[in-house]
Design a protein around this nucleic acid. Structure first.
Lengths: 200, 200
DNA sequence: CATTAATGTTTATACTGTCAACATGGGAAC
DNA sequence: GTTCCCATGTTGACAGTATAAACATTAATG
């Protein structure tokens, strides 16, 4: 809480490491999330990290999860401000994309390949938020229950893909102004509503 | 050109390193693309690598580019087999997705963040192939010239996003059977054709 | 043929992740 | 309160990584 003097025992090293990781992710993405680097950031020896995380990979996976949960929290907050089902869906996608654009470091860390560990469920999870907004559409009668899974996959894919491409550094990346994003969400919407009918 | 004995000079180390990198990428993704590891693979000292690539990052960027070009080549080949504009578009997306599913290692290496180096243009480039197939739609009168850029971004985003999600290791990843992919492309198509009209 | 430039090797330095052994001190048992 | 233990920290060692500097070899060129 207050200014921690140089005590032998840190107090809450686990939390501090995750916080330092998120801070570093924000500013430099995936580059400086090494064990030594983060340990130094928290004024602790590198080996202290292993009392809380079984490996550097596991530490990074936890930081990654924190980043994903932060994204999900922002999505939930944005959805709460909308009443119309369509606007709720659009808010979901818009928030996801804006997160990638405004917090490129966090977004990169959130979705790096991390194939290890016990794989606890994210809480909250962006995927769940997406699926819930599609279930809303179903409850409103806009799509069939049988379509929910495919529609959610489509919407998630389009939004996630755009977020990656627009937030990347490729000179050929798509434009990312408000209008472009809005039109993208219109097209996703069209795919959601009209997709099945076109499917012969 | 025949079987190179253990000569002091390798012959074509640059090519050999890229080939070894692609081979390694195919089997283990981004994990074993280090300078030492690849040098050993080609029976050469680690420092020899630096005669051809100014750093390990640059070497990895070159391997990544090779992977992207391989993808583009497969797309071009698949398109050549189709005559109808719609089918050509679908072949573009389907090939992209199937590449991600059948060659997860190559796909991962192709699209890791690599922000360095002179950034030569990919040749051929998947992005160009995508854009060409959208231009086809424009020439066929299916979309307006002014829409081309946005439509290409949408289509690319949806396909790329799905490829990443379906090819990943998340237990919640979307299904990836033929039917699901086909329906996804139907929805993308719907977004392309109907997107603008819905946009008020 | 002799020199040179291209290409490879060895050696050394600085980092990284992680194991093993040791140190500290906060809280439980007496 | 005192004692002991163990969760949590430390240091040191070792393997692995990237890469700089100096040296070696051979292909090419005048």
């Amino acid at each position: 809480m207050g200014t921690m003097k140089t005590k032998y025992h840190h107090g809450d090293l686990e939390e501090a490491l995750l916080a330092a990781g998120i801070r570093e992710a924000r500013s430099t993405g995936t580059r400086n999330l090494g064990v030594n680097s983060l340990a130094k950031e928290v004024n602790v020896s590198a080996m202290a990290v292993y009392r809380h995380f079984s490996s550097g990979e596991v530490l990074r996976a936890s930081i990654s999860q924190q980043a994903r949960e932060e994204l999900a929290r922002r999505m939930i907050k944005a959805i709460a401000a909308e009443k119309d089902v369509k606007n709720r869906f659009r808010a979901t996608g818009r928030t996801y994309i804006q997160f990638a654009l405004k917090e490129p470091g966090l977004f990169a860390v959130a979705f790096v390949a991390c194939d290890e560990g016990p794989k606890r469920e994210d809480n909250p999870s962006a995927w769940m938020v997406f699926q819930d907004s599609i279930l809303d559409l179903c409850n409103a009668g806009l799509i069939e229950p049988a379509e929910v899974e495919d529609v959610a996959a489509f919407a998630w894919a389009a939004v996630h893909g755009y977020a990656i491409l627009a937030g990347g550094s490729d000179p050929k990346r798509p434009k990312s102004n408000e209008k472009t994003i809005s039109q993208l969400l219109d097209r996703v919407w069209a795919g959601i509503i009209n997709g099945r009918e076109l499917n012969k």
